[in-house]
Computed example of a mutant assay.
Amino acid sequence: MTTIRDVAKHANVSVATVSRVTNKKGYVSKEAEHAVLKSIKELNYRPNSVARSLYHKTSGMIGLVLPDISNPYFPELARAIEDVALTYGYTVVLCNTDEEIEKEKKYFDALKQKYVDGIILTTSSLSFDEYEELDLPIVALDRVIGDHIPTVVSNNREGGKTATEHLVKCDCKFLAHIRGPRGVNPADERYIGFKEVVNKLGIPNVVVDANFNIDQAEKVTREILTKNPKIDGIFASSDVMAAGVMKAAHTVGKKIPEDLKLVGFDGIPLGDMLVPSLTTVEQSIYKMGALSARLLIKQIEKVPLDSYYYELPTTLKERETTRQRGEIT
């Protein structure tokens, strides 16, 4: 492997001169620069990326911190972030925290040691002060951490209202909401949207907590359908949770959509694969990921931001889980 000393010897210059050329720092005469670049090309020399990151305190890497990579929603975000990052010459380091605070802290320590240029967060386990202490460009994606951290989210409250109003439009008389974890902004906002509609219209309802996973959603749904057999409409806080609702409904003998209508949230491909296919509130997942990457890169490259808060609209994607009897084929 060709070393920096080999280049220096071939170009008949010092190692320091080669370093100044490759790092683009310090004065080098035109003749010396030409000799070094010619030697680099002829010897096929590639500068040591680790050494360069130590010298510059940069790496050309972006950290992406996710709470649960097994949830299909997050790989879609990651794909968009990676696409944009690569376009601008950055690589993405994926960190899956499993929603564990200590694991998240360990990742932050590792990322700082690797001199990552910035971090995109889809978690919010730590305090605002702890994130500030990282002293790195940060973008909060699908989470709200603080006013001074650029944030990209969907209009979750409006999406929750849309989902609930659609169930009412489908003649549901007793609604349930399988909400996401308390303290997680998207889950809280979707819950608020649900409550705004049921309270305004005076519709009987029940709300139960669950995490964004199939198994827990199935468990709590089975329990509430057993205790409240009159429930005829459910709004699940994510599409993955909606899949758990469908399993529970089958277990207790309720047919979807004949006996029970269901709306999810996210718009991931899973919804179209389920049988019956899932009515859902669709987020602009790719746009969210791409926008967050651009905002982070702007910070890294010292480009002023037009805004620190971006809220993208949601749309209702109507499928078979809310079809009326006459509409089912």
Rank of each mutant, 00 (worst) to 15 (best):
P204D: 10
V206D: 06
G180H: 07
P186T: 08
N185W: 06
I178W: 00
A176P: 09
E196V: 02
R179F: 01
L201Q: 12
E196P: 03
R179M: 12
I192D: 11
V197E: 04
V206F: 14
A176K: 14
N211I: 10
D209W: 08
V197M: 10
G183N: 04
N211K: 14
N185K: 06
K200M: 06
A187W: 02
D188A: 11
A210T: 05
I192E: 15
D209M: 13
E189H: 08
A176L: 14
G193W: 05
F194P: 01
Y191C: 13
K200W: 03
I203E: 00
P186K: 05
V184C: 02
A210Q: 04
K195I: 11
N199C: 06
N205A: 06
G180R: 08
N185M: 13
V207S: 13
V197S: 09
I178T: 04
G183V: 09
G180I: 03
A210V: 06
A210D: 05
I178D: 00
A176G: 13
R179P: 00
G202Y: 01
R182M: 12
E196C: 01
Y191V: 09
G180N: 09
D188H: 03
I203K: 02
G183C: 07
P181S: 11
R182K: 15
G193D: 05
E189Y: 10
D209P: 13
F194K: 01
N199W: 04
R190V: 07
N199L: 15
K200V: 00
D188E: 13
L201H: 11
V197I: 15
D188P: 03
R182I: 14
I203C: 01
L201E: 14
Y191M: 13
V207M: 13
P204S: 09
P181T: 12
N199M: 10
E189N: 09
P181R: 13
N211W: 08
K195R: 12
V206P: 10
R190F: 07
R182D: 13
V207P: 07
V207Q: 08
N205F: 11
P181F: 08
